[in-house]
């Protein structure tokens, strides 16, 4: 299990990275943390002719809060996200979710952008991006564009980042006041890829009624899904356990899981409901405490 031959280009800046991508056309691939790419290369499942190493790109390594958004540079290590006080404060759901990514050794190298662009449907960061309507800045040579998660995540292992572009930043809206969240994940072993994961965020108005709801599930389709039916069932409600049940009951009809050794399609469908229900419970008890 050894990786195939490739040309190596080290990029110190975004500009250098884009130049290298332009130089090699579609043959080049970005090397970020390498925690998904390198195993695939070791198995020789992917054979990029050129790797553009963006690990030295310092300008994409940042976490900052601006205008109500938590802005994260794409080269930021997952471990930095996990340890950041700013993340915990402004987007605690993200801080919780990142702990579920693999193991510390993985998060030490793995980058935020790398996980997002890899597009694995069970990835925690993608789930949170989907849930919170994160915004993506995609940088091309001389131009940049933004995208929401609906456009960004195309399909299984496919995103909107073109061959000559790199993901520069992802930004998450800060947790609104009077909000609570829940993040639950089912895996067979600690640190595994999720069989299913559920993330929810709820806000309440002054009267204690749910004013906004976000519900999303990973591992139950080719990409993480927002469960709109569940969100609708929650908004305006009092968050009683009957309501939470009813909201979660909307999950199975909206997901589209596959079967494998770790769980049948029926199991995943039902677990999506169960874990959404549990995450809702967590979120609601959090808002009640606030």
């Amino acid at each position: 299990m050894k990786p195939p031959v490739f040309k190596y280009r080290r990029a110190g800046t975004v500009e250098e990275a884009l130049s290298a991508l332009a130089e090699y056309g579609g043959e080049a691939k970005i090397l970020a943390g390498g925690q998904s790419l390198v195993p695939m290369m070791n198995f020789r499942l992917v054979r990029p002719a050129v790797l553009v190493d963006i690990n030295p790109v310092q300008e994409l390594d940042y976490i900052r809060v601006e205008d109500g958004w938590l802005r994260v540079g794409a080269r930021t290590r997952q471990r930095s996200l996990e340890k950041s006080a700013e993340v915990r404060q402004s987007c605690p759901l993200l801080a919780e979710a990142v702990k579920w990514i693999g193991h510390p050794q993985i998060r030490n190298r793995g980058t935020v952008g790398g996980s997002l662009v890899h597009g694995d449907p069970s990835a925690e960061l993608i789930l949170v991006a989907m849930l919170l309507d994160a915004q993506f800045i995609i940088q091309g040579k001389g131009k940049s564009r933004t995208a929401g998660p609906g456009d960004f995540f195309k399909d299984f292992l496919t995103t909107a980042v073109n061959e000559d572009e790199i993901l520069a930043e992802v930004s998450y809206p800060m947790a609104p006041p009077r909000s609570g969240y829940g993040f639950r994940e089912l895996c067979i072993r600690h640190g595994d890829f999720a069989i299913v994961a559920a993330a929810v965020q709820l806000t309440v108005d002054e009267r204690g009624r749910c004013s906004e709801a976000w519900v999303a599930v990973a591992g139950a389709g080719p990409k993480p899904l927002r469960i709109r039916g569940a969100e609708e069932a929650l908004v305006g409600s009092d968050g009683s356990s009957r309501v939470l049940d009813a909201a979660a009951a909307r999950v199975p009809e909206e997901v589209d899981p596959i079967s494998d050794l770790k769980g049948s399609e029926a199991y995943r469908r039902e677990m999506a409901r169960v874990f959404v229900r549990r995450a809702l419970e967590d979120a609601w008890s959090m808002v009640k405490e606030r």
Partner: peptide, 23 residues
């Protein structure tokens, strides 16, 4: 050699990494 077992873990600049997943 695919980043699961952790046997090859070393420290790079003070942080643990799986040395099979780094060139």
């Amino acid at each position: 050699e695919h980043g699961i077992c952790g046997c090859c873990t070393v420290m790079v600049d003070g942080l643990t990494v799986r040395s099979c997943l780094m060139f």
